[in-house]
């Protein structure tokens, strides 16, 4: 059965700064601030609009943080949904032109 991929891109309405392995992201629309931990930072940095979330999880989360793929998928999906809800990440089932 074919599965739908998820693609992520950073919104244009944000300001962000990565310091070490943490990232601070702010919505420029409502000034909401998010602090991303190392795992979140890895996903954030890989959100280029072209790389499917499943590959980001495999290559950037499971490989670098020694997390089982099932657990990483649940956590990543929750993380992505929360950022998308605040307009920080754009989520699509197609690649997102940058």
């Amino acid at each position: 059965m074919p599965t739908t991929e998820t693609y992520l891109a950073k919104s244009n309405d944000i300001a962000a700064r990565t310091l070490g392995d943490e990232t601070i992201v702010m919505s420029t629309l409502d000034s909401t601030i998010f602090m991303l931990n190392p795992t979140g930072t890895a996903i954030w940095q890989a959100a280029d609009g072209n790389t499917p979330l499943s590959r980001i999880i495999e290559d950037k989360v499971c490989a670098e943080f020694d997390v089982p793929v099932e657990q990483a998928s649940v956590d990543a999906r929750q993380f992505v949904d929360e950022l998308a809800e605040h307009g920080i990440l754009i989520v699509s089932d197609h690649p997102i032109p940058q």
Binding site: R17, L19, G20, T23, M26
Partner: peptide, 9 residues
């Protein structure tokens, strides 16, 4: 630094 930025903001 990240926490300092967050608190300053």
């Amino acid at each position: 630094p990240a926490e300092a930025i967050r608190r300053l903001m």
